[in-house]
Simulated scan of single mutants.
Amino acid sequence: MTDRRKTSTDPPVPSATVQAPSTVEQPPTLPHAPSRSFRRAFQDLAQGWRQRPLWGHLGFQDIKQRYRRSVIGPLWITLSTAMTAVALGILYSTLFKTEVPEFLPYVAVGLIVWNFIAGCINEGTEVFITNEGLIKHLPAPLSVHIYRMVWRQSLFFAHNLLVYVVLMVVFPHPLGLATLLAIPGLMLVALNGVWVALLVGIIATRFRDIPPIISSITQLLFFMTPIVWKYDNALLANTPRAQYAELNPFLHYVAVVRDPLLGQPVEPRHWIVVGGITVVGWALALIFLRNYRSRVSYWV
């Protein structure tokens, strides 16, 4: 019989327990910020702002898609605002016994500013819900969807400014360098639109009853805000209830844009109120973004 015993000349059998050499370097561990931190919240806002080509293009596409196959396209935005402003201006100028050349531009500009504000609020409640597919499949910051929505409302505002230009030609107002104050006023309103959409968007994504509630409240506030009426009108100035209009924050937001466009000086209190609300609102929105940013993708 052949001796099958292992001899000293046999090659060594490799062992399965041989360990990797200690000289192999492991990839370094990078510092990682926790998901619930203000650092992550600021990074989301900054990264979203750097993606301006993305949400800028998407905003243009939203308008083109909405008026696809329309003969006059986005000009329907201007015509709709013009017809509403003329109808409301003539009606309420008759009720309040005010001259049409004075009251119609007041109503038109107020309506243009209000449409921007209301658009940021109402569309902000569904900004994450309507972008469910992008949120789940596109690795992008949440702020991209907010910037896209506010940019779209800015384009609507630009279209509606054509109504203002026509009214200034038909009913001239004494305009000057003070009219340029409407630019920082509009930028301040847009800055508030971002935090409002961010805040209500997160809340409405979690609680789906919020959008119709906010829509109803916004419609009610339209009649409580001096847009189609003046709280310093002769018929209202002596009524105590008219003075409560100062408690309506939307009055101040409309004033910082409307007054310069009509050649009127902006009262300092309007800037103070809008600035204070901006600071408080952004602080609250950052807290919500810090705590619930990572949960939005699960709620949509």
Rank of each mutant, 00 (worst) to 15 (best):
R4C: 06
R5H: 03
P11H: 07
P12W: 10
P12R: 15
V13T: 15
V13D: 10
S15Y: 12
A20V: 12
S22G: 12
T23N: 09
V24W: 13
Q26D: 10
T29P: 12
T29Q: 15
L30N: 11
L30K: 15
L30D: 14
P31S: 09
H32W: 00
S35M: 06
S37C: 07
R40K: 13
Q43F: 10
A46I: 10
W49R: 01
Q61A: 06
D62Y: 03
D62M: 05
R69Q: 15
V71D: 12
G73D: 07
L75K: 07
L75E: 05
M83S: 14
T84L: 14
A87S: 11
G89Q: 02
G89Y: 04
L91D: 09
S93V: 05
F96P: 01
T98S: 13
E99S: 13
E102D: 15
E102W: 08
P105L: 07
Y106N: 03
V107H: 04
A108P: 03
V109D: 11
G110L: 00
I112L: 11
W114T: 08
N115D: 03
N115Q: 10
F116Y: 10
C120N: 04
C120I: 07
I121K: 03
E123I: 04
G124H: 03
F128I: 05
T130M: 09
E132L: 05
K136W: 10
K136P: 08
K136M: 02
P141W: 00
P141N: 03
S143T: 11
Y147T: 01
R148P: 00
A158G: 08
N160E: 04
L162H: 00
V163L: 10
V163F: 05
Y164T: 11
V165A: 14
V166A: 13
M168R: 13
V169S: 09
V170L: 09
P174H: 12
P174Q: 10
P174D: 15
G176D: 05
L181H: 04
P184W: 02
L186Q: 02
L188R: 08
V189Y: 04
L191Y: 12
N192E: 13
G193L: 09
V200N: 02
I202D: 03
I203D: 02
D209S: 07
I214F: 08
L220G: 04
F222A: 05
F223L: 01
K230H: 14
L235W: 13
T239P: 02
P240Q: 07
P240H: 01
E246H: 13
N248A: 02
F250H: 01
L251E: 00
L251P: 08
H252N: 12
V256C: 06
R258F: 08
D259E: 15
D259A: 15
L262T: 04
P265K: 04
E267V: 13
R269A: 14
V273M: 09
V274W: 00
G276W: 05
I277R: 00
T278A: 14
V280A: 11
A283W: 03
A283I: 14
N291A: 13
N291S: 13
Y292V: 03
S297N: 11
S297A: 15
V300I: 09
